[in-house]
C-alpha cells in the first residue's frame, strides 16, 4: 500500500487527451486544452498520419507528467497501443477510454471494464445489464 502515488490534494491537475480531431476539438471547446511556455500541449490529435510510436510516446509522456490527473484516450487509439495501456495500472493519473464518433464503444476492449465485468460475472449481477 505504500507504493500508492499520492497527489498533493491542493494541486489542480490537467486532463490530457489522445483522440481524433473531432473529439479533441469538442473538449478544447469545453476549455480542457493547455499549452505551456514550450508549446507543449496536453493533447494529441490522432489522424491517419499519426504513427503508433507517436501515440505510445504521448501516452507515456502524459502518464508520467506531474500535472496530469486524467488521461482520456479514444478507444480505437487505445487499441493501437493496447499493450502499453494494459501494462499501465497506476491509480493516478487515471486512464479513461472514451468512445469516438466514428468508432462505436466496445466494452469488451476496455482494460478496466473487462476486469469489472469479470468481477461482476462472478457475482452474477451483470445479467440485467446486457
Amino acid at each position: 500500500m505504500a507504493t500508492r502515488t499520492q497527489m498533493p490534494s491542493n494541486s489542480s491537475g490537467l486532463i490530457a487527451m489522445i483522440a481524433d480531431e473531432d473529439t479533441i476539438t469538442g473538449f478544447l471547446l469545453a476549455g480542457v486544452g493547455n499549452v505551456d511556455i514550450r508549446r507543449k500541449t496536453n493533447y494529441l490529435i490522432v489522424d491517419s498520419k499519426t504513427t503508433v510510436k507517436q501515440i505510445e510516446d504521448a501516452f507515456k509522456d502524459f502518464t508520467t507528467r506531474e500535472d496530469v490527473a486524467i488521461v482520456l484516450i479514444s478507444q480505437y487509439v487505445a487499441n493501437m497501443v493496447r499493450f502499453v495501456v494494459d501494462s499501465y495500472n497506476n491509480p493516478v493519473p487515471a486512464i479513461l477510454e472514451i468512445p469516438s464518433k466514428d468508432h462505436p464503444y466496445d466494452p469488451q476492449h476496455d482494460s478496466v471494464l473487462s476486469r469489472v465485468k469479470y468481477l461482476f460475472n462472478t457475482e452474477s449481477v451483470a445479467g440485467d445489464r446486457r
Partner: peptide, 21 residues
Amino acid sequence: NIKFTVIENVKTASLRVKSRT
C-alpha cells in the same frame, strides 16, 4: 474551419481537475 480556430486558440486550461482523498 471552426476546429482550426478552436485548436489555435488554446492557451491555458480553464477546466481543471482537483484531487482530494
